[in-house]
Design a protein around this nucleic acid. Structure first.
Length: 102
DNA sequence: GACTTGACTAGAC
DNA sequence: AGTCTAGCCAAGT
């Protein structure tokens, strides 16, 4: 999971559902967020957004703004408060991860 | 090991 | 366009 998120390149974003699917659990998008909750600051957690490209709110409300700012600093463009997924969605190559394959 | 929670999503209204 | 609802299932209690 962490390894996967760590592979998201600068200036790109991935959705919770997308990451879940890449892990072979297409219905576990929420678990991705839950795992992110206690993730180390070293992870580019800010590159994970919801299916619409928006920043999901969490319990403390804060840090949503931080996420947007960090993304903008990486060159990610926003349109009406959402990431332009068409331009920034991460498209990982197939078969990069230690031998897995659907 | 049952019970609740929720950084999700897709579909309906 | 926004809001609600119902499935979902890994993490936390």
């Amino acid at each position: 999971m962490h390894a996967l998120i760590g592979r998201i390149p600068r200036g790109r974003v991935a959705t919770y559902g997308q990451l879940a699917a890449l892990l072979g659990r297409p219905r576990s998008a929420r678990a991705v967020g839950a795992a992110l909750r206690g993730a180390p600051a070293s992870l580019p957690w800010h590159r994970v957004v919801n299916a619409r490209g928006g920043i999901s709110r969490r319990a403390h409300g804060a840090s949503m703004l931080t996420q947007r700012i960090r993304l903008e600093q990486e060159g990610v463009r926003f349109r009406r408060g959402r990431v332009v997924l068409a331009a920034h969605r991460w498209r990982p190559a197939r078969g990069w991860r230690r031998g897995e394959d659907p």
